[in-house]
């Protein structure tokens, strides 16, 4: 009986150790995978900020608040699509959101992907009047 218990214990320890290692490996893969998506989302968001900055007047920025866009990171014929959410708020000279109109607005774009629960990247740019 003691031998059986010891054998069972040895197998349990070996199994737990294996499960632990596989879990760590999965987490490592997941982190590397997310890191790749973050770099791609970063490129897409920064491009969208430049385009909005170039094409939208200061007065027209507010109309973009809350808008949702789909933009792809394309490599040749392949592409990964990201969901972008645009937020525009008035900010004061310290960059703090202001409930009243000021002379500068903060354009913020967050990128998400269905594969990940939380936003991959968020970039902001303050645009003065």
């Amino acid at each position: 009986m003691p031998q059986t218990l010891l054998a069972f214990l040895a197998m349990m320890i070996a199994a737990l150790s294996a499960i632990n290692q596989y879990t760590a490996q999965l987490q490592s893969y997941e982190a590397a995978y997310r890191s790749e998506f973050e770099l791609m989302a970063n490129a897409v968001v920064l491009e969208e900020i430049e385009i909005i900055d170039l094409t939208t007047s200061y007065g027209g920025l507010e109309s973009l608040n809350g808008s949702e866009l789909k933009r792809s990171f394309e490599i040749g014929a392949d592409g990964i699509e990201f969901d972008l959410t645009v937020t525009v708020t008035f900010v004061d000279e310290f960059g703090t959101p202001s409930a009243t109109a000021t002379t500068q607005k903060e354009l913020s774009i967050a990128a998400t992907h269905p594969r990940f629960a939380t936003p991959l990247v968020t970039h902001t740019r303050v645009i003065a009047q």
């Binding site: 040895a10 199994a15 290692q21």
Partner: peptide, 28 residues
Amino acid sequence: IASVLVASTVLLVVVATNLNAQRSAVES
């Protein structure tokens, strides 16, 4: 025979786990 089977299983699991850990470290 029972002890030999248990010991072999444990040994295999430990070796496989170690190899996998090494491969994972290289990939990282």
